[in-house]
Simulated scan of single mutants.
Amino acid sequence: MDVEASRVIAVAPERVAAYAMDWRNDARWTQGIRNAELTTEAPGGGFGVGAEVTRTAYFLGRRIDYVLRVVTHEPPSMLEMTSVAGPFPMHVTYTFAAHPQGTLATIRVRGDASGFYRVAGPVMAPLVRRNLRKDLRDLAGQIG
Protein backbone atom coordinates (compact mmCIF):
# COMPACT_ATOMS: atom_id res chain seq x y z
CA MET A 1 0.00 0.00 0.00
CA ASP A 2 1.24 3.47 -0.89
CA VAL A 3 -1.30 6.23 -0.25
CA GLU A 4 -0.93 10.00 -0.37
CA ALA A 5 -3.22 12.97 0.19
CA SER A 6 -2.60 16.73 -0.03
CA ARG A 7 -4.44 19.89 0.88
CA VAL A 8 -3.72 23.59 0.73
CA ILE A 9 -4.08 25.17 4.18
CA ALA A 10 -4.37 28.96 4.37
CA VAL A 11 -1.71 29.26 7.09
CA ALA A 12 2.09 29.67 6.88
CA PRO A 13 4.13 26.43 6.69
CA GLU A 14 5.89 27.17 9.98
CA ARG A 15 2.58 27.25 11.85
CA VAL A 16 1.13 24.19 10.12
CA ALA A 17 4.30 22.17 10.68
CA ALA A 18 4.68 23.24 14.31
CA TYR A 19 1.19 21.95 15.08
CA ALA A 20 1.32 18.80 12.94
CA MET A 21 4.81 17.78 14.10
CA ASP A 22 3.89 18.04 17.78
CA TRP A 23 2.94 14.52 18.89
CA ARG A 24 0.77 16.02 21.67
CA ASN A 25 -1.67 17.13 18.94
CA ASP A 26 -1.92 13.73 17.18
CA ALA A 27 -5.26 12.73 18.72
CA ARG A 28 -6.78 16.13 17.86
CA TRP A 29 -6.34 15.90 14.10
CA THR A 30 -5.35 12.36 13.11
CA GLN A 31 -8.21 9.94 12.36
CA GLY A 32 -8.57 7.03 14.74
CA ILE A 33 -5.80 8.03 17.14
CA ARG A 34 -7.04 8.01 20.70
CA ASN A 35 -3.72 8.47 22.47
CA ALA A 36 -0.13 9.40 21.60
CA GLU A 37 2.79 9.39 24.00
CA LEU A 38 6.45 10.24 23.59
CA THR A 39 7.94 7.00 24.93
CA THR A 40 11.57 7.56 23.88
CA GLU A 41 13.21 10.96 23.58
CA ALA A 42 15.67 11.80 20.82
CA PRO A 43 19.34 11.39 21.78
CA GLY A 44 19.59 15.15 22.40
CA GLY A 45 16.31 15.13 24.38
CA GLY A 46 12.74 15.88 23.38
CA PHE A 47 11.28 15.20 19.96
CA GLY A 48 13.56 14.71 16.97
CA VAL A 49 15.44 12.02 15.04
CA GLY A 50 15.47 8.85 17.13
CA ALA A 51 12.44 9.79 19.27
CA GLU A 52 9.63 7.25 19.48
CA VAL A 53 5.92 7.93 19.80
CA THR A 54 3.54 5.20 20.90
CA ARG A 55 0.07 5.57 19.43
CA THR A 56 -3.20 3.83 20.20
CA ALA A 57 -5.60 3.98 17.29
CA TYR A 58 -8.71 2.28 15.96
CA PHE A 59 -8.96 1.15 12.34
CA LEU A 60 -11.62 -1.11 10.83
CA GLY A 61 -13.08 -1.49 14.31
CA ARG A 62 -9.86 -2.87 15.77
CA ARG A 63 -7.50 -1.38 18.31
CA ILE A 64 -3.98 -0.91 17.02
CA ASP A 65 -1.04 -0.12 19.27
CA TYR A 66 2.10 0.86 17.42
CA VAL A 67 5.36 2.72 17.86
CA LEU A 68 6.74 5.17 15.30
CA ARG A 69 10.40 6.22 15.33
CA VAL A 70 11.37 9.59 13.87
CA VAL A 71 13.84 9.11 11.00
CA THR A 72 13.70 12.62 9.51
CA HIS A 73 12.82 15.78 11.41
CA GLU A 74 13.31 18.93 9.34
CA PRO A 75 10.89 21.60 10.58
CA PRO A 76 9.04 23.22 8.96
CA SER A 77 9.23 21.06 5.84
CA MET A 78 9.32 17.34 6.72
CA LEU A 79 8.64 14.73 9.38
CA GLU A 80 9.23 11.10 8.51
CA MET A 81 8.53 8.17 10.82
CA THR A 82 8.75 4.41 10.54
CA SER A 83 7.07 1.78 12.67
CA VAL A 84 9.27 -0.21 15.04
CA ALA A 85 6.39 -2.06 16.72
CA GLY A 86 2.85 -2.78 15.61
CA PRO A 87 0.67 -5.05 13.51
CA PHE A 88 2.45 -4.26 10.22
CA PRO A 89 5.40 -2.27 8.83
CA MET A 90 4.48 1.33 8.13
CA HIS A 91 6.26 4.46 6.93
CA VAL A 92 4.59 7.87 7.39
CA THR A 93 5.81 11.11 5.81
CA TYR A 94 4.42 14.59 6.44
CA THR A 95 5.60 17.41 4.17
CA PHE A 96 4.79 21.11 4.31
CA ALA A 97 5.66 23.37 1.37
CA ALA A 98 5.06 27.05 0.81
CA HIS A 99 2.10 27.68 -1.49
CA PRO A 100 0.68 31.00 -2.79
CA GLN A 101 -2.37 30.41 -0.59
CA GLY A 102 -0.43 29.24 2.51
CA THR A 103 0.88 25.68 2.84
CA LEU A 104 0.64 22.58 0.69
CA ALA A 105 0.41 19.85 3.35
CA THR A 106 0.92 16.25 2.23
CA ILE A 107 0.71 12.98 4.11
CA ARG A 108 2.05 9.75 2.61
CA VAL A 109 1.59 6.33 4.20
CA ARG A 110 3.38 3.26 2.93
CA GLY A 111 3.03 -0.18 4.47
CA ASP A 112 2.55 -3.88 4.07
CA ALA A 113 -0.48 -5.22 5.89
CA SER A 114 -0.41 -8.62 7.55
CA GLY A 115 -2.94 -10.91 9.25
CA PHE A 116 -6.45 -9.45 9.38
CA TYR A 117 -5.28 -6.32 7.58
CA ARG A 118 -3.95 -8.34 4.62
CA VAL A 119 -7.42 -9.87 4.20
CA ALA A 120 -8.86 -6.34 4.27
CA GLY A 121 -6.24 -5.28 1.69
CA PRO A 122 -8.62 -4.37 -1.15
CA VAL A 123 -10.39 -1.82 1.04
CA MET A 124 -7.30 -0.61 2.94
CA ALA A 125 -5.95 1.92 0.44
CA PRO A 126 -9.29 3.70 -0.18
CA LEU A 127 -9.99 3.84 3.58
CA VAL A 128 -6.53 5.13 4.39
CA ARG A 129 -6.81 7.77 1.63
CA ARG A 130 -10.19 8.87 2.98
CA ASN A 131 -8.76 9.10 6.51
CA LEU A 132 -5.74 11.09 5.30
CA ARG A 133 -8.05 13.58 3.60
CA LYS A 134 -10.03 13.91 6.83
CA ASP A 135 -6.76 14.34 8.75
CA LEU A 136 -5.77 17.24 6.52
CA ARG A 137 -9.24 18.78 6.78
CA ASP A 138 -9.09 18.51 10.57
CA LEU A 139 -5.53 19.88 10.63
CA ALA A 140 -6.72 22.91 8.66
CA GLY A 141 -9.63 23.35 11.07
CA GLN A 142 -7.42 23.12 14.16
CA ILE A 143 -4.97 25.81 13.08
CA GLY A 144 -7.03 27.87 10.63
Rank of each mutant, 00 (worst) to 15 (best):
10 A>D: 15
12 A>M: 07
13 P>E: 04
14 E>R: 10
15 R>L: 10
16 V>P: 07
20 A>N: 04
20 A>Q: 07
23 W>D: 06
23 W>Q: 14
25 N>E: 14
25 N>K: 14
26 D>Y: 14
27 A>W: 02
28 R>G: 01
29 W>N: 02
30 T>R: 14
32 G>F: 00
34 R>Y: 14
35 N>E: 13
36 A>E: 02
37 E>R: 13
43 P>E: 06
44 G>V: 13
44 G>W: 11
45 G>T: 08
45 G>F: 09
46 G>M: 05
46 G>L: 10
47 F>M: 14
47 F>N: 01
47 F>C: 06
48 G>D: 02
49 V>I: 03
50 G>H: 02
53 V>I: 11
56 T>F: 08
58 Y>H: 15
58 Y>G: 08
59 F>R: 07
59 F>Q: 06
60 L>I: 01
60 L>T: 04
63 R>E: 14
63 R>M: 14
63 R>K: 15
64 I>N: 08
64 I>D: 11
65 D>Q: 10
65 D>R: 15
67 V>I: 07
67 V>G: 02
69 R>L: 06
73 H>P: 05
76 P>N: 07
76 P>K: 05
81 M>G: 09
82 T>R: 15
82 T>L: 15
82 T>Y: 10
86 G>D: 05
88 F>G: 02
89 P>G: 10
90 M>C: 13
91 H>V: 00
96 F>Q: 01
97 A>F: 01
98 A>M: 11
99 H>E: 09
99 H>D: 15
99 H>R: 13
101 Q>V: 06
102 G>K: 00
110 R>T: 12
116 F>S: 11
116 F>E: 05
118 R>F: 11
118 R>V: 03
119 V>C: 08
120 A>W: 10
120 A>N: 14
122 P>K: 00
